Computed example of a mutant assay.
Amino acid sequence: MSTDVVDLTRRLVRIPSVSGSPGESDVLELLLGTFDDRYRVRTLRGPDGGLRAVAVVPAVPTGPLMVFTGHVDVVPTGDPDAWARPPFSGDLTDGRVWGRGTTDMKGGVAAIVASLDAAPAGSAVAALFTVEEETGSRGAADAATLLDGLDTGLLVVAEPTDGRVVRGHRGVTWLRVVTDGVAAHGSAPHLGRNAISGLTRVLDRAAAEGTGWDTLNVGTIGGGTAVNVVPDLAWARVDLRTTDPLADPAAWWREQPDLAAVEPELALPAVLLDPDDPEVVRLGIEPDDRVVGYFTDAAVLTGALGCDRVVLLGPGQTDLAHRRDESVAVDALHRAVADYTDLITRWDHR
C-alpha cells in the first residue's frame, strides 16, 4: 500500500514534538509502522525508553547507499492564540497543510517515507530520522551510529529549499558573551559601572564593524538584579552564520577588551555541495547557486558518516520555517516524492 504523503504529513504535525519533549519519541514511534519487510528498522532509545533515532536500511544492503535524513522536532509555537489555525491541527485548506513543522520539516519527513515506500525492492536507499536538531543538532551524532557498518555515498537532507537543490548551508556559531560592572545604588550610578550599558556598546559595535560572519542575531539577553541597583553583570547569546569554512566568528568577540567572557555554545561548519563532483554530475544534479542561512544535521552527519556529498532538497518554503502560520503546499509534497523517487532511480542505475 503506497504512502499518502499528505495524510502522513498531517498525522505527524498533529503530534506536538517541540525539541526535548516526549512528542519527539511519539513521532518516531509513528514512523516505525510505516515500513514493510523490504527494510530493516534500527532504533536508538534513551535512558527513559523513549526513541532518540530511527534508521531504515535495506533488508539486504548493497553498495554505497543514498541516505535520506530528516529531524522530527520542531521549534516552539509562541502564543497559539496568535495563529490563524491551531498550530498542531494539521488542517488541510486552500491546497496547503497548516501547522508547526509542516515546512520545517515534517513535510520532508513524510516525503522521505513515501519515496522509500515507492522504491523498488533492492534499492540502495536508507533513511535516518533524528531528534533535537533545532537545539543544535544534538541528536545527530548518536543517530549516525545506527548506520555503522554501512557505506553512505550520498546524503539527502529534506529541509525546506523551495523544492530546488541548493548549493549548501551556512555554518553556525552560538556564543554567550558577558560584561561585568560595579554594583552601586540606583540613585548614585556614578559610583558604579553599568554592565548592561557596556554590553549594549559591544553589541552596537558588533553590528556596525564586527567581522568574521555573514549574519548576526542577538537572540537572548539578560542582566542586573533589581531596578534600583547598578548591574554588575550582563550577558547576551548571539547567533553568527557564515559560508566561509575557514572563518572563526568568535575571534572578533575574543578581541573585545570590554567583554569579561566569551563562552562558545555551538560551532557547526558550513556544508557545500561541489557541483563538479563526478557523482553529482552523473546523477544530473544541478544545484542553485544559493546557500541557505539555516544549519542542518548534515553539519554533524558528514563527519559521522564519512560522506561529504550532501544534497539539500525539500518541499517547504525557506521563508516559512519557524514562522507563525507555517504551512506547506500539497503540490510541493507530491513534487518532493517524485523528485526523491527519481533520485533513487538514478542512484540505482548510476
Rank of each mutant, 00 (worst) to 15 (best):
D4M: 12
T9Y: 13
V13H: 10
P16R: 14
S19K: 02
P22A: 07
E29Q: 12
D36I: 10
R45T: 15
G46H: 09
P61T: 00
P64C: 01
D73F: 03
V75H: 05
G78S: 10
D79Q: 11
P80H: 11
D81I: 03
G90Q: 12
T93D: 13
R96Y: 07
K106T: 09
G108R: 00
A110S: 15
D117V: 03
A118C: 09
G122Y: 07
A126N: 02
A127Q: 04
L128R: 00
G149N: 03
E159P: 06
T161Y: 04
D162G: 15
G163F: 12
R170H: 10
V182R: 13
G192F: 11
G192E: 00
A195Y: 00
G198S: 15
A208L: 14
T211Y: 03
W213K: 03
V227E: 15
P231R: 02
D232F: 04
V238C: 09
D239Q: 11
R241H: 13
T242E: 03
W252K: 06
A260I: 07
E265P: 06
A267M: 10
V271F: 06
L272S: 12
L272F: 07
L283G: 06
I285D: 01
T296W: 08
A298E: 08
G306Y: 03
D308Y: 04
V310G: 02
L312Q: 09
G314V: 03
A321W: 00
H322A: 04
H322Q: 07
S327P: 07
L333E: 04
H334S: 10
H334M: 05
D342T: 15
I344G: 02
W347V: 01
D348C: 09
